[in-house]
């Protein structure tokens, strides 16, 4: 393989993924507002563009024109660094999640993921843990008590939920006996989806994913009624928008992870039996990945507007006394399954 081919392929793939991510993020904000409106018997934004279709761009234009304020008491360097960190982590995590089967284009075999890292799952875990720093930095450097409380809550929450998240992934890794995303997806062929084989692990991972992305019912870091805006109280303009985008990008990553680990990635059960031939099978498989992610994103929004926020001690109770033992139980369950059926 010539070096230029690889470079061009990677650049095209990076641009494709980034564009899709940015567009999804902006329309996810609109979707959130629309779905929340419908759930509350309202109409939602419908004035800009066709039925509100251009609302995200109006929002961006507004945010760009806002004044960027840094509070006097803030640590300037960290205050500026935090939103960049948040958005960098949010967008670089996607690199290892495959969104389709290998395809052949212009006589080359192209893998539909940016990097086939053989410890891809660890890479995602490591980067999402780094995401805590962005929020903690933001909270600490703002020089405001509300931000600080938000930052502290966030670090405590994310660390406790990472434990059960890690153990739930343990079950998946045992099934696939590999840490590579591609192998994990291939191990879930047919109806052998991990969500069906290990439902406890699926639920613990799902709940932890909600906590990791700071979404309701676990959005304590920004709990509006108590903490004004939580860690981003003192942010305005595009810095605020960066946090906002990072939150939604994290939702996409969490959905991608859930699909990859538990819902069979791009696999559609028994699609080979239909005999559709080379390009169509791959197209349907790639689309199925996006459909699954789309459903999960809707699920995230749906849950947010249905369930009230947990109290802080309830959150910690749930994390350490329920989720952690359950994820351990899941590992035992997976071990038994492997013993019995292999």
């Amino acid at each position: 393989m010539d070096i230029w081919g690889i470079v061009i392929e990677s650049v095209v793939k990076i641009l494709f993924v980034l564009t899709i991510m940015l567009l999804t993020v902006s329309y996810l904000v609109l979707a959130e507002r629309k779905v929340s409106a419908w759930i509350q018997s309202r109409l939602g934004p419908n004035r800009v563009g066709w039925g509100g279709a251009l609302q995200p761009f109006a929002d961006v234009a507004k945010l760009l024109l806002k004044e960027d304020i840094v509070p006097k008491a803030a640590d300037k360097t960290l205050h500026t660094l935090a939103p960049f960190l948040a958005i960098f982590i949010a967008f670089s995590t996607y690199a290892v999640i495959p969104f389709g089967p290998p395809i052949t284009l212009f006589g080359r075999e192209i893998n539909l993921h940016l990097a086939d890292v053989n410890i891809g799952v660890l890479y995602v875990l490591a980067l999402t843990s780094l995401g805590v720093y962005a929020i903690t930095f933001a909270g600490w450097s703002s020089g405001s008590k509300y931000s600080l409380l938000g930052g502290i809550r966030s670090s405590a929450q994310m660390i406790s939920y990472e434990v059960s998240m890690g153990f739930s992934i343990g079950g998946v890794v045992m099934m696939a006996s590999s840490l590579s995303p591609v192998d994990i997806i291939e191990s879930q062929s047919g109806w052998m989806w991990n969500a069906i084989v290990q439902p406890i692990g699926f639920i613990t991972f799902l709940v932890s994913a909600f906590a990791e992305t700071n979404r309701l019912p676990f959005d304590l870091p920004e709990a509006e009624p108590e903490l004004v805006g939580g860690y981003h109280t003192e942010y305005s303009s595009m810095k605020f928008a960066s946090f906002f985008m990072a939150e939604y990008a994290n939702m996409i990553i969490a959905s991608g992870m859930i699909v990859m680990l538990y819902l069979g990635g791009w696999q559609v059960p028994y699609i080979e039996k239909l005999g559709l031939g080379s390009p169509f099978t791959q197209i349907i498989q790639t689309l199925s990945f996006f459909v699954k992610v789309g459903f999960l994103l809707f699920f995230f929004i749906w849950v947010r507007w249905s369930i009230p926020r947990f109290r802080y001690d309830q959150l910690m109770n749930l994390g350490w006394k329920v989720m952690f033992p359950l994820s351990l139980l899941n590992i035992v369950w997976v071990a038994v399954v492997i013993m019995l059926f292999n």
């Binding site: 759930i39 309202r42 109409l43 749906w302 849950v303 249905s306 369930i307």
Partner: peptide, 20 residues
């Protein structure tokens, strides 16, 4: 939680109260 989700899902398709 499933009950709650079912309720909000039903509400999504009910007529809206907003007056434009």
């Amino acid at each position: 939680i499933a009950k709650g989700l079912a309720l909000t899902f039903k509400t999504m398709f009910k007529p809206k109260v907003t007056m434009e």
